[in-house]
């Protein structure tokens, strides 16, 4: 397969489940400037792209928001959203792909599948972030990102509306940094 010229400096994958919508909104609202990396957001059971783009939340940013479709090209300075009802995977440094394989941890999209495939492709240039959730999805993906040399971050459990998913990651030693919401927003702006 022909690869597009790779201008991508890396990929940040963000996973959330129950209770993470407000956190995602907070992060998006505080993003500004131009990102050299791409960001992907995957949330269980919610059409997060429509929630973010349809609602009256005012997000003033010069970033592009894109709902991932079949063989979606990965570009920098773009925030991608995994579509509800599909697994999103990273096929290469320049392309996402979708699948309707069975649910994982009762979920599709699966955070683990996105994170694991992102780690395999982007290696140390992959950063995983876990937000609120009441599911153990994401933990295996975070472990894989660490194993491939990337960074893994969770929101501080004390700030999470639902800390279960974060605590599972911490218990399994899958986390290299813990950040407050404000620190996370600051971190993302710098990527």
């Amino acid at each position: 397969m022909s690869e597009l010229p790779n201008t991508n400096k890396g990929l940040v994958v963000i996973g959330g489940s129950a209770g993470s919508t407000e956190e995602i909104y907070y992060l998006l609202k505080h993003l500004n400037g131009t990102l050299r990396k791409s960001i992907v957001i995957v949330v269980h059971g919610k059409p997060i792209y429509s929630i973010v783009t349809d609602c009256n939340w005012t997000i003033s940013t010069n970033l592009n928001f894109v709902l991932i479709g079949q063989n979606q090209t990965i570009k920098p300075n773009t925030v991608y959203f995994a579509p509800d009802g599909y697994h999103t995977l990273v096929e290469s440094q320049s392309m996402f792909c979708l699948s309707v394989a069975p649910l994982l941890h009762y979920c599709r999209p699966s955070i683990d599948l996105l994170f694991t495939s992102a780690a395999a492709v982007f290696k140390h240039k992959c950063t995983g972030i876990i937000l609120s959730g009441a599911n153990q999805d994401g933990c295996a993906g975070m472990q894989e990102i660490l194993r491939q040399g990337g960074n893994t971050i969770t929101l501080a459990a004390t700030e999470a509306s639902q800390p279960y998913m974060i605590n599972v990651c911490i218990e399994h030693r899958a986390v290299s940094m813990v950040m407050s919401k404000a620190e996370l927003a600051n971190f993302l702006t710098g990527v």
């Binding site: 063989n71 995977l89 990273v90 096929e91 792909c97 699948s99 394989a101 994982l104 495939s117 395999a120």
Partner: peptide
């Protein structure tokens, strides 16, 4: 076929 979905299915 794209490789990532095949690989993830083989691993599972």
């Amino acid at each position: 076929y794209n490789r990532a979905p095949l690989k993830s299915r083989l691993l599972s």
